[in-house]
Design a protein around this nucleic acid. Structure first.
Lengths: 202, 202, 202, 202
DNA sequence: CATGAATGAGTATTCATTCAT
DNA sequence: CATGAATGAATACTCATTCAT
């Protein structure tokens, strides 16, 4: 297939992608209202009017951005586990997926946390959040049933895991720590001690 | 001092306080830019122009609000511990102060988390954040030195504690759990297991 | 009553009136879409923002303008006739009222004619037009019943009278004729010949 | 000339004609400024860019449209009368031409009336209007000289005739009457009574 | 001190026009 | 010749801030 055959679509995809990238950079730092459409266009290297060829309104743009990253997160983090994995292995896998995504896309994660209850997000965008809690709760419930995890409120455990990850992002963005694989592993070990029936076992 | 002299001051303080309250309610839900000065004035029951008798600009108002709550937080949570407290007792006290404040003033806590890196906060407002980290780190370092807490990166532990609290607020505000004293205690126990050398000991 | 007591309302009325005047001047010549809000504000001697203190939107402004003049027209032209007036006298009175209004407010009449079917006029504004036709038709019907006017379609007669007046305005605005009292009287006589049973009688 | 050579031209003419038709439909209802070029292109079934192959600008398009219909009107209505026609016959012929054109092309007539003084029409387009008045005035002057028409201001008579026709269009477009041949004839009779020296004579 | 009408700079959005394919 | 994606100037409208009362 020749380059020219695809170039039209490619260029469009490219512009849309560049607009989403620019919007992420700006919204994450400034917030939705503080960012102007010309700023987004400028950073994406297109004219103002072009923004409106790809997104109906500025609100439609944030919503598209939010859903884009929420979908990517769900795809990577909430994918089914390999069958037969132990509770410890499952915990480790989920935690490493979460932190890997977070470390690869810290801006996207901060953006989602900052905006998840914002008034300019429509119902569909907000609905995406639920999935995460559902999957996480089910995992904890199963692990508890298997006896590997103590008798704790599943939602509390989800809050702890999400919070631990968010805390690392927050302090990393302030320069107080480095959120690398080692830090992720140390936190994993610490969290497992918090919730496991026999943290030192095995 | 006559009564009328005092009442005047009282009324002024009252207006200032009502403005700060109104601003907190609105900023926390809508964000800084999405809230208009007339809205704040209306909710506080004063005229638009009056806002400017108490605060130079809208930015000055957010900064005053931020510092107000940051100071309250520091006063309540970071106050010196009773001398002679064990690491376990100190940990418990800090955690209970944190969660008590958070449960009493969830709007203020969400506001501070949402806005702590915002561009409209000036250097002085942002500096207030540092204190918290310094105190928290010192406590962890001491506890570790005493042998009660494992050999962990202090900042990671602070991230974990802050994150655990933030996670509870977040899921509580979504209606997924109830952040009451029992929940706080359960989380305290869980966190202590995560970091203590002998979590079951004593 | 002192001047100062009323001055606040007076000034407001004044601004509203000046805005309506400016809008009439501009809309009549340029059409609704070709006129910018800053132009209206400038001509009225107020700031742009002030326009929006008096009218929700630009559309609300045209609608208010349209209703203002339609009401004035109906008040002056469609007021009840003195009882006992003959058909000839009634015809003369209606015609003189129409042409007097038209000569005094040619811009308003052109504006109403130009805009009466415009998409930016809401239902209520458009409804005002009906009254005119109803009154005019009733008059013709009565005059015909009395035998003074020939057996003509009443709507056709209304069309003729309105058209005659509109034609005079149009050619006057082009500088082809002078629409004064004499011209109005000459047209009245001509129209009466057109419709009367015995134009020369009496 | 080969067929293909002609068809090419035909297709071009066709596109131009379709653009003019689409523009008439839209301008007449919405006004010049409220209609977008993409709308015109869409209704004409061509791409946006194609509009600019046939017309320099949007203004050039309205001007072309205006002149197109003005020329058609002049060709049909203002064509020389058969020699030797009486004043009554001439009057009838002019009136029937006017009303026939108006009934066949009501949109074009409304468009011309609505736009005849618009700022986006250039001098040449506006000049076309003069012809009509000149011809009409000359006819009245002659008829008056022949003694068939009373001693009236010619321009007033033109205003009356134009107004009568415009009134019929206006009320017909509002659904208040039907502008058919019978209505046209009734109005002709009525108008002749208005201006003739001996309306009942012959 | 308190008020709220007035201000005008600033923002989202539209749309006539161009030009590479 | 035809196309329609890209452009950016222009417009309606908002809202922080001022100041006369």
């Amino acid at each position: 297939m020749s380059t020219s055959e695809k170039s039209k679509t490619k260029q469009q995809d490219d512009k849309r992608a560049r607009l989403l990238d620019a919007a992420l950079d700006l919204f994450e730092v400034m917030g939705f209202e503080a960012v102007t459409v010309p700023e987004i266009a400028g950073r994406a290297g297109v004219a103002v009017g072009t923004v409106y060829r790809y997104f109906e309104t500025k609100e439609a743009l944030v919503n598209a951005l939010y859903r884009h990253w929420k979908a990517a997160y769900n795809r990577m983090v909430l994918a089914p586990l390999p069958t037969g994995a132990s509770a410890r292995e499952s915990f480790s896998l989920y935690w490493r997926r979460m932190t890997l995504f977070t470390r690869n896309h810290p801006k996207a994660v901060r953006f989602m946390d900052l905006h998840h209850h914002a008034s300019y997000l429509d119902a569909e965008s907000r609905a995406a959040s639920k999935t995460y809690r559902d999957v996480a709760e089910k995992f904890i419930r199963d692990a508890r049933a298997s006896g590997a995890v103590r008798d704790l409120d599943p939602v509390m455990v989800v809050a702890l895991m999400w919070g631990a990850s968010a805390g690392l992002v927050k302090f990393a963005s302030q320069g107080a720590l480095t959120f690398d694989a080692g830090m992720a592993a140390a936190m994993e070990d610490t969290l497992w001690r918090a919730i496991a029936t026999k943290p030192l076992g095995d």
